[in-house]
Nucleic acid binder design. Structure first.
Lengths: 218, 218
DNA sequence: CTGCATTATTGCACGATCTGCAAGCTTGCG
DNA sequence: CGCAAGCTTGCAGATCGTGCAATAATGCAG
């Protein structure tokens, strides 16, 4: 057999191909729009056969976003510790997922521009996370069970509460993401980094933003 | 021209066909599963051509859920009054949308069973509402502008807060929907109506459930 | 009732998405 | 080198979804 923690030619090539397809897809979408971009065109630019495209991504949208299903799953299986703050902990979890989901790619700016010009993809990105809801809320429910404020309920009550909290965080993150993607409208290019802040910033803003709203609601 | 508030043969037939397609789709999905159900099969059972299917629903999933885009849009354009409680008002709005979305159909039990056995459709249903997010949050932002607790901010701040609140409500509603769909597991049929409560109930539970969680979080 | 305008249904052709399969090529490793 | 495992590719095929034009059903006015 062979190394599972490779660094071998195979693994490097695979990463290269994946990145090539992702970049080709993102660029083409920027040039022609999402609808007008076909898998055939992406494959051609990435220099692989259309059939190979599907060996890497299950759909055009996933390729554009550069979603790495394996990395996401690995991230979910990691051990995590609970800080005592359900909101903060959930935000951290969701943030880590986004990082794993597409953060490995070099072309963050490219992805941002794509997201900005194709809001449908933002929805899809969130939908993807929503599909992981089962596993996420399970993790969160485990945390809540150790939390004195939530310890009272039955298991299913706990799970529902976890689902609600998770939903709240996801909603906040979505708003935050949208602001992040929109942030550079009409950017004159003076300070290149200032217009494309670390996504991490947006998450921190998201938390405080949510707390503000919650305070006003209560 | 002709009556726009019809009751004429045309309109009745159209409603019939729509219902027939919806029921055929839902039944087939229950029998064979979502994946294994093709548009051709649905069309055949509903006794229309596959081409006609697309004159009524843009996709298989929409047919299964019986989504009526026109009714939804009409519901959105209705005038609404603001009670002073953002959460309650938003819940009402979302609830009305769900009613308009699929509530006209006779076969609520059928739809419920489909949703229960195909959780993917639940996500999709919520996604559909999420696509209306722009219009919904606009309405909500309008309400917030009249609310003393929120009146301070700029227009874009207001809009973001509206988006967050909307997201919170949608998350809660989703949890509530899931409970509604799951509610009758292992139901022995003793009191038939007790196991399939009015969805309205679920929404009321959702509100209190959310408030409970918010209280614990604060 | 009859003809005309509107709208609905349908078949057909077409492009795109996605999957399974088998053949051939590349890489890993002894 | 030579075998095993993995990757790429072409091909066939199912399904989805849309545009177009012919045909049929319906509503209405005369």
């Amino acid at each position: 057999m062979q190394n599972s923690v490779d660094g071998g030619l195979r693994e490097r090539k695979r990463a290269q191909t994946s990145e090539a397809i992702h970049v080709a897809a993102a660029e083409l979408v920027l040039e022609r729009g999402l609808e007008a971009t076909t898998i055939d065109a992406v494959s051609e630019r990435a220099d692989v056969s259309p059939r190979t495209f599907f060996n890497y991504f299950p759909s055009k949208e996933d390729a554009v976003l550069g979603i790495d299903e394996i990395a996401v799953s690995a991230e979910l299986d990691r051990e995590r510790d609970y800080t005592g703050d359900p909101l903060a902990a959930t935000f951290d979890l969701v943030y880590a997922l986004f990082e794993a989901s597409g953060g490995r790619h070099a072309k963050t700016a490219l992805k941002r521009e794509v997201l900005q010009k194709n809001p449908q993809l933002m929805t899809r990105q969130m939908l993807r996370v929503a599909e992981l809801e089962g596993r996420l809320s399970g993790i969160l429910a485990g945390w809540l069970a150790d939390d004195p404020r939530f310890a009272g309920g039955t298991e299913s009550e706990l799970l529902e509460e976890a689902q609600v909290i998770l939903g709240i965080c996801l909603a906040t993150v979505r708003v935050s993401m949208r602001r992040w993607a929109t942030n550079s409208d009409g950017d004159p290019g003076g300070a290149p980094e200032a217009s494309a802040p670390d996504p991490r910033r947006s998450y921190e803003q998201a938390i405080t933003s949510l707390r503000t709203v919650l305070e006003k609601l209560s």
